[in-house]
Design a protein around this nucleic acid. Structure first.
Lengths: 192, 192
DNA sequence: CTATTATTTCAGTAATTACTGAAAATCAAG
DNA sequence: CTTGATTTTCAGTAATTACTGAAATAATAG
């Protein structure tokens, strides 16, 4: 048992190392977020909430990440809107705290659902409308004889197949993912 | 048979509709690209190559998308670097043409592979390094008794599990996807 | 009600990213 | 070599996105 160590510097030292490890995780997570359409700061705030596993208030965020109050406030709200962090009132305390959802799978399924809705669905719709435009051409099937039209038609069809399948997988992932490895993932792990 | 239609406006009209449909696809694809870390213009250029299914030269790109020569040149090169379009020399022609890979699945597996390498792998590495930092803390296991450290340790572990599994799935997807529905997708479609 | 503390909003600004256009480089043919 | 066609590069600029800080608003306690 390391009971012989000086008691005084012990706790600060550990705390320092914990903070360093957390900071590194936060930094990396922020960088990744930036390339995934979430901005760096929002990703960092979420990383902070997640990795500490403890409620943080606006000032904690400001101090730890060196950002302004306005930025912290707006980013926290945006994260709440996404649903990946939650507001939390502490008994007798005036200020509000925030905490991350604890289940990584749930966090990602929320993000996946939202991105599917915002980004994939509109593309699929557009593809279908483009197909209609070509089909309903005033010339009807006669137009199909023109090589250029036919080539575009084929490409649209391939893309539609791809997007439909991908969409379906996302759908499954999203609707099943509540706590732990979900069905999609279990199926894959078993088969591969 | 619509042979009674005036022959003169026929072809221009069809070409017009084809162009409109293609433009709509290109626009949407560009918007999606923008939220996925590829910039709008690059995504549009690729969409143009893909949807026309015909070789295009720099001037085609400039005219169709209303961008400068410099921008076209740099974006085309970047797309070639990604490997989702290819340079193409036409017999006797001086200028260079470009064409998209035709297989959507291949295009996406290339993108997925690159993003995994650039974004997911470093995060996983960082997580592991953070875990080591906490484990090798000067206090060893004694530090684990402190609640804050233990909580962070757990969160890191959950995140590591998630990233590992996701990474494995990506890996499979990427290494199998050559032409048509790949193994990962086939497994999923059968099971769901 | 007032005082105090916390939160939100947003005009202005900073930082980043994307784009242009012209000059330089490359290349092929004569 | 020279000429003309094509491509690349990059300094400068435009457009976009992110952030600040202070003022306005809200909320709670006395």
């Amino acid at each position: 048992m390391p009971a012989t160590l000086e008691p005084s510097p012990v706790k600060p030292d550990t705390r320092e190392q914990l903070k360093t490890a957390q900071d590194e995780f936060i930094r990396r997570w922020g960088e990744m977020g930036a390339t995934w359409g979430i901005n760096r700061t929002m990703a960092e705030i979420h990383a902070l909430c997640y990795i500490t596993a403890q409620p943080v208030c606006t000032d904690d965020v400001m101090d730890r990440l060196h950002i302004s109050r306005g930025n912290a406030s707006m980013s926290l709200r945006a994260l709440c809107d996404w649903g990946i962090i939650r507001r939390l009132h502490k008994r007798g305390e005036r200020r509000e705290y925030f905490e991350s959802l604890s289940d990584v799978w749930e966090i990602f399924s929320i993000i996946a659902a939202e991105r599917k809705r915002r980004e994939m669905d509109p593309v699929l719709e557009t593809i279908k409308r483009c197909q209609q435009m070509l089909d309903e051409s005033t010339l009807g099937k006669a137009a199909a004889k023109q090589e250029a039209v036919e080539l575009t038609r084929q490409r649209l069809a391939s893309m539609e197949e791809f997007m439909s399948v991908t969409n379906k997988i996302f759908q499954q992932f999203v609707s099943n993912a509540r706590t732990g490895l979900n069905r999609v993932v279990r199926v894959l792990l078993k088969a591969l």
